[in-house]
Design a protein around this nucleic acid. Structure first.
Lengths: 183, 183
DNA sequence: GGTACTTTCACGTCGCGTGAGAGTAA
DNA sequence: ATTACTCTCACGCGACGTGAAAGTAC
């Protein structure tokens, strides 16, 4: 049995957020005091716990409600959807970064912008001691271990979608031929 | 002289967006027809052009208004602010990705999730032929060439903020000592 | 006369924040 | 009596979308 502000503080939320969760029926305290004060039980606290973990994943309150309603049916589906959505959002923000950098450069800016692109990245790897062939190995390994992350990383470097697909296709060819020769 | 829907289509916007821009005084057509139809002149079109380029950078309509009002005073400031803000937003989304992956894994998911973390990254670099020392060089060079990107990348790997700062501090020490010995 | 435009107005979205006015707990 | 809580209700944000009711262009 805990009052609203205390609960909010415990979870690093605001009181009004909890009021809102009650209003939309996401988390309504099971008990009210005589004066009408919200009193959250242990079960409510636990529910909030799960709500927070989903909020940390950036899910909407509506999606969270669905996840808590169902026993465990399409959880994975929803989470994977959000994962793809996040990939897309990050890509959008990266594009925005490039847009700003373009504007700044066309503005003839004084200081350098220090955003990394393909050339800068290759230079860093080369200084670290990688040859062109090593970099192919790097791509191949990256593609094998974490294809989605590989894609996201290349997009992060500002490489066009088309070229990304080419690079990944090549990495996959390297990989399959490598496994073939091993057999 | 172009009507609203035509202009919207030309720029890939919605008619209501342009109505909204008029309402908030961001882009008001200079001419109205006898019947009160909005008629956008060439100057209006050009203004919309700049608005779009700033929108592509993810700036708020309020910031865009400021950028268009001033001759060219604090443009760079605003753009650099947005750049830092974007870094932060991307970091937040990456954290959300990690959160989802954690949930999926605790859920005992079937297929692998293929998100990259510190260990996976180190493994890839090692397979490509980098020693521990080479990786230090890599950090140092990354920090020198693109400190902000270095930070963003480490966050992308899901490394805690504290450790990131340690790594970067070390890289900076390496860098300064390297330049010292060169003199 | 049909239909494809246009106008203004008001209300909905999402996740809360911000008061206002009134009651309650320690 | 003071102070620190609590309640409900209503309105605000940002960037539009979605009708509704009425007028206009072709």
């Amino acid at each position: 049995m805990i009052t609203i502000t205390r609960l909010a503080k415990r979870f690093g939320l605001s009181r009004t957020a909890l009021l809102y969760y009650d209003r939309i029926g996401l988390l309504s305290p099971t008990v009210r005091s005589d004066a009408g004060y919200r009193l959250y039980t242990d079960a409510d606290v636990e529910r909030l716990c799960r709500i927070c973990s989903y909020r940390n994943a950036g899910l909407s309150l509506d999606e969270i409600r669905q996840l808590l309603k169902q026993p465990d049916a399409p959880k994975e589906q929803i989470l994977r959807n959000r994962l793809r959505q996040l990939d897309h959002e990050i890509g959008t923000l990266r594009i925005q970064q490039r847009a700003i950098i373009n504007i700044l450069q066309s503005l003839g800016t004084s200081e350098s912008v220090s955003a990394i692109d393909k050339e800068a990245w290759v230079r860093i790897l080369r200084v670290s001691g990688l040859s062109d062939e090593d970099m192919e190995v790097w791509h191949t390994q990256f593609e094998r271990d974490a294809p989605a992350a590989h894609h996201a990383f290349l997009r992060w470097l500002g490489i066009a979608e088309e070229e990304i697909l080419q690079i990944r296709a090549k990495s996959n060819r390297n990989h399959s031929s490598a496994t073939k020769t091993h057999r």
